[in-house]
């Protein structure tokens, strides 16, 4: 441990290099992220389309949140945004629940020392695979397999096997298409969640499980009394990151459709934002609505993010900092008393 004096010398002579090393990050981040974020905020107070230079105050917010506003389609805009928010929540919930249950089950199985499972490594690799495939390609793949008519693979197979009499509308039906997107999302993410939970379970001391074994606890009891409580931090982290990821859900809902336009039944908030700032030309898109929706999402994300941040903060570092400050204070007090010079 370096003494306070040594630390001070180091900070005097090398601090400027520290700033030099982190400067590129901050310059680029401010230019490409912070300023666009502020700009989005500004745009959310401005008009839409042809009216996009005018300052309209909170009107965009009141329009998309409550349907009140001077523009012609205020009520429709509100209805669309509300539906998008609802869809986002439904799609997120419908993929998160099966995903976390499946991942948890698999993670427990894969880390169970008593179970003899050949090819564990292979299973892990295959189950993670969907996660790295381009989401756009995945959407295209499922649209082409699950197309609505008998000309597509799944419907043709079901008809050939006489399991159904009519082709099922997997892509255009409001309910079926949502279930499809939930399924695909689960398909994409369960491997990832499984591996994260596995590393969490492997962090639990094996002696706890051994002790429980000797005391005669069965695997269900071990799961609920040991694994689940000790896995809580990583579960919260998974939950929050998944919620934030759910708010960003774009590629799949946007591309899971027939023909040229996205399906309104699958419109999420991210699709809503994208659609609004792509309406018409680049100069005259509906930046106001897009901006207001973005800021609302930002507020939700900020709340969710601060929860994880609070739960994941480095407790050791905070304690160390406190100690250091205390030591510095003592040092100063001593110096004031005199006699000690460095």
């Amino acid at each position: 441990m370096a003494s306070a004096a040594q630390r001070r010398i180091k900070s005097i002579s090398y601090a400027k290099y520290g700033y030099m090393f982190i400067a590129p990050f901050f310059l680029v981040y401010c230019f490409f992220q912070i300023w666009p974020l502020i700009y989005t905020f500004i745009l959310s107070f401005k008009g839409n389309q042809a009216n996009n230079a005018a300052f309209v105050g909170m009107e965009n917010y009141s329009t998309i949140l409550f349907g009140k506003g001077s523009s012609a389609g205020a009520a429709a805009t509100h209805a669309e945004f509300a539906k998008a928010l609802g869809n986002t929540f439904i799609l997120w919930f419908g993929n998160f629940i099966p995903q976390i249950l499946l991942s948890l089950l698999l993670a427990v199985w894969f880390t169970d020392a008593k179970v003899k499972l050949p090819g564990k490594g292979f299973f892990k690799i295959v189950m993670y695979m969907p996660n790295i495939i381009t989401a756009a390609s995945v959407a295209a793949l499922y649209v082409n397999l699950f197309g609505d008519s008998k000309n597509y693979f799944i419907n043709a197979t079901l008809l050939n096997m006489h399991l159904v009499s009519e082709p099922i509308k997997f892509v255009t039906d409001p309910v079926n298409s949502k279930i499809m997107v939930m399924f695909i999302q689960t398909w994409l993410w369960f491997g990832n969640t499984m591996i994260m939970l596995m590393s969490g379970i492997m962090g639990i001391s094996p002696s706890l499980f051994e002790a429980a074994d000797i005391d005669g606890a069965n695997s269900t009891q071990q799961f609920f009394k040991i694994t689940l409580p000790l896995l809580q931090p990583i579960m919260v982290y998974t939950l929050v990151t998944s919620m934030i990821g759910g708010l960003q859900m774009f590629d799949l809902p946007y591309l899971f459709h027939n023909g040229a336009n996205f399906s309104k039944e699958l419109e999420t908030v991210a699709v809503y934002i994208y659609y609004n700032f792509n309406k018409g030309t680049v100069e005259q898109a509906s930046y106001g609505y897009a901006g207001a929706a973005s800021i609302i999402i930002f507020a939700i994300t900020a709340v969710l993010g601060s929860i994880t941040f609070y739960m994941n903060r480095d407790k050791d570092a905070i304690a160390k900092k406190k100690q250091r400050k205390k030591a510095e204070k003592q040092m100063k007090a001593k110096m004031k008393q005199g006699g000690l010079t460095i």
Binding site: F25, T241, I273, Y287, S294, T301
Partner: peptide, 21 residues
């Protein structure tokens, strides 16, 4: 850096496109 880690791209994309334009 930890604080901004979770901000989704969608949030700033409207301003980003306009700015890039």
């Amino acid at each position: 850096i930890i604080g901004v880690m979770m901000i989704p791209v969608q949030v700033s994309s409207a301003g980003f496109v306009r700015f890039m334009y």
